[in-house]
């Protein structure tokens, strides 16, 4: 055995590339076999005719993609897009001030940060259930509102677009706060002092110094909210019911009750393409970083 080991080591020594590949092989194999290949299989499925009993039949067709021009599916796409953007904007409006307060605070900073990170790691399923517990007809919100006398009948909140939006914002808000905080925290205080000395009022200082310099965080946060919102499935499934379908639910449906695998694959591939487009856009903006600051 000893000689085997030595020989193997000697061989690795003479060939640095071989050593790299030995380290890469197991994990690389896994990622290629169980991440990349499945995506390719999915793409192939999306181009094949639908089988009678689920599955696909050999052949080539683009019908699963053209089907998205059907008003019914176009509406699902539009809704998914609109909600993801709305969710991103709401998260930005809610999250920026929070990130600002955390970055400016001194004594409470660790605690405030911890309170943002905590829901980040809390089971998404549990958090979604928590929203149901609050919003359902017999839930806490309705019960309190009735007790206070603001309403006589329970309001239907669950299974409305409002419930889905609340759930999405609740779910993804921490993703917005953390990157904005990170960029605000790095902000050079002397720039603000300079602006003050030069006579800029607080509002102007914010608009012309703080905001432009925190743009990398805003862009990163927006992407981190937009992407999972686009692919979200659990939130609309549990809080939206049958009517508030997003593309994630459409995909899931093709694999459960509808049994139209190629159409589901096409829908899934569209989600993936949108996500990759968003990431590419982000990388462009990030690498152009400096130019985000408006020229004088």
């Amino acid at each position: 055995m000893g000689t085997m080991r030595e020989r193997a080591l000697a061989w690795l020594y003479t060939r640095p590339e071989a050593r790299a590949w030995a380290l890469l092989a197991p994990g690389g194999f896994w990622l290629i076999a169980f991440f990349l290949v499945p995506l390719l299989v999915m793409f192939a499925y999306s181009l094949m005719p639908r089988g009678i009993y689920g599955g696909v039949e050999p052949g080539f067709t683009l019908e699963h993609y053209t089907r998205f021009f059907d008003p019914l599916y176009l509406q699902v796409l539009k809704r998914t897009f609109a909600w993801s953007i709305a969710c991103t904007v709401i998260c930005l409006l809610l999250g920026y001030p929070v990130a600002y307060v955390i970055a400016r605070s001194t004594r409470w900073r660790t605690l405030l940060l911890f309170l943002v990170v905590l829901p980040f790691w809390t089971s998404f399923l549990v958090r979604t259930f928590a929203m149901i517990f609050l919003m359902r007809d017999t839930g806490l919100f309705n019960s309190w509102m009735m007790k206070v006398g603001l309403i006589q009948e329970p309001l239907t909140i669950l299974y409305t677009p409002f419930a889905v939006m609340a759930g999405l914002v609740y779910g993804f808000l921490p993703f917005m706060i953390l990157p904005i905080y990170a960029s605000l925290e790095k902000l050079d205080q002397s720039l603000l002092e300079a602006a003050e000395v030069l006579g800029a009022r607080p509002a102007a200082r914010f608009r012309q110094v703080t905001l432009p310099l925190s743009m990398p965080g805003v862009v990163a946060g927006s992407l981190l909210v937009f992407i999972p919102a686009l692919g979200s499935f659990l939130t609309s499934d549990l809080l939206g019911g049958a009517k508030q379908v997003m593309i994630g639910n459409l995909v899931q449906n093709q694999f459960s009750s509808a049994r139209n695998w190629p159409f589901g694959s096409a829908a899934s591939f569209i989600v993936m393409a949108l996500v990759l487009a968003a990431v590419t856009w982000y990388l462009r903006v990030r690498d152009a970083g400096v130019r985000i600051v408006p020229p004088k």
Binding site: F35, P38, L39, V41, M42, I227, P228, L230, G231, S232, F233, G248, V251, Q252, F255, G264, S265, S268, F269, V271, M272, V275
Partner: peptide
Amino acid sequence: TPEIVTGIS
């Protein structure tokens, strides 16, 4: 990658 895409594929 959205979880639903990973799962389906």
